[in-house]
Amino acid sequence: MFNYLTTFPGNGQHMINEDGVLKLARLARLKIDKAASIAAAAKLNSILGYVEQLMKVNVEGVEPMSHVHGSTNVYRADEVRPSPNPDAMLQNVPDSSGRFVRVPIIVE
């Protein structure tokens, strides 16, 4: 019988190498150095190896569940309800200039 408490080996179909880890980190705006990427790849691969068991499941004709309970059409009327204190949004800004949020210049 299958034991939940052991890790699932997986067949390595979707393994990530260090390079992949670096690309992924870049996409997620995380900084990771070469050395750390090796360790990270190993841990990610053990997880991805585990989730690969889903590949064997027959899901033909099954609707994906993107929302719970099947509720639909939740909306509001077009009315302005200003925040009671928009300035409070600005209280946590790490760097600002007047009412603007400041960041290093964006090069386009």
Binding site: I16, V21, A40, L44, L48, V51, L54, V57, E63, M65
Partner: peptide, 24 residues
């Protein structure tokens, strides 16, 4: 990182969409 991976193009159907179906 895992989340970014499973949503990234080329992997979305294999991981995310499939997982949503298994969720069903």
């Amino acid at each position: 990182m895992i989340g970014t991976y499973v949503l990234s193009s080329g992997y979305f159907d294999a991981y995310y969409l499939r997982a949503q179906k298994v969720r069903t």
